[in-house]
């Protein structure tokens, strides 16, 4: 007897139910809330055009995320390049250092930055003691602080996909470019970068998407001056209890991410970007 569906699906059914119930359900609930609370309709979404506050928050979020992505990927690319070209033992040491940084809590890292770069932090007091500056440099409690914290947190995420794409390059292709008379810069621009493009795109996407939802770092290092979407959502949910607005912003983030993925999928296979087998 043939089942109308393949019996393998029965095995994954419990997990499908879990995912459906605990993941898709709440998301649908959010979407539902965004068009029904406090009154049915698109009132929440209309705030996007009518509210200056929301506009400013969205603009801050996008600006911070873009800058952070650019710098994280730039640093990530350099680190990955150094790792690929390091000798075997050095390379594995570098990789373990990179992985260790994943295990350090975001809170610890954030407060470390405060201690380092805050008004009375090591750097400022050191420079003052040396007489180089008379006023502490405002590193923290502003957008610069948020960017420093976020970039620092995101660099390891940027390294991994770029590293993977660099490792798949045949070293002879780079040698070929040199033997054909290309300078180092030409080889980088015309051979190396194009061949690592998938890694760069993957890293940018990953970093940008994680950035969109950042909450702790802007809250602590921004000193309340840098309000980003995630923090604003929490304020709406916990303080002002405007769940409709919060749900609308959450839905906006969700669609933003999905749109990004869709745009990327027009240019390249997403499975390649996320390290799947090349076909």
């Amino acid at each position: 007897m043939r089942l109308p569906i393949q019996s393998g699906w029965l095995l994954v059914l419990p997990f499908l139910l879990l995912v459906g119930g605990l993941f898709l359900g709440p998301i649908l609930n959010i979407l539902w809330l965004s068009v029904t609370d406090p009154t049915p309709g698109l009132g929440n979404y209309a705030q996007l055009v009518t509210s200056d506050t929301l506009g400013r928050i969205l603009w801050t979020t996008i600006r911070v995320c873009v800058i952070c992505t650019v710098f994280s990927v730039l640093f990530g690319y350099s680190i990955a390049y150094a790792m690929v070209h390091a000798a075997g033992p050095t390379q594995s040491r570098m990789l373990s250092l990179l992985l260790v940084s994943f295990w350090i809590s975001v809170l610890v890292r954030t407060f470390s930055w405060l201690m380092l770069l805050g008004r009375n932090g090591v750097v400022n007091s050191g420079l003052e003691a040396l007489g180089i500056i008379s006023q502490p440099i405002p590193f923290m409690r502003n957008e610069l602080g948020v960017l420093i914290g976020m970039i620092h947190y995101m660099v390891p995420y940027a390294v991994l996909p770029i590293l993977a794409s660099m490792q798949s390059i045949d070293g002879r292709v780079v040698q070929a470019s040199r033997s054909l008379g290309a300078t180092g810069a030409q080889t980088l621009w015309r051979v190396y970068l194009p061949l690592t493009r998938a890694g760069v795109v993957a890293a940018s996407l990953l970093v940008f998407i994680i950035n969109l939802g950042f909450y702790v770092i802007p809250a602590v290092l921004g000193g309340g001056k840098v309000l980003m979407v995630a923090e604003y959502i929490s304020v709406q949910v916990l303080v002002t209890l405007q769940w409709g607005t919060a749900a609308m912003l959450a839905a906006l983030l969700l669609f933003g991410v999905l749109t990004l993925l869709f745009i990327m999928s027009r240019f390249m296979k997403l499975s390649t970007v996320f390290g799947g087998a090349r076909t």
Binding site: D170, R172, V173, Q175, A176, S177, R178, S179, L180, G181, A182, T183, G184, V191, P194, L195
Partner: peptide, 20 residues
């Protein structure tokens, strides 16, 4: 003289063509 300044053509094992 570095490789890129020697102006020697080279055919590599496995060809090393630029795949892109």
């Amino acid at each position: 003289t570095p490789a890129e300044k020697r102006n020697f053509g080279m055919v590599f094992q496995g060809y090393a063509l630029f795949p892109h």
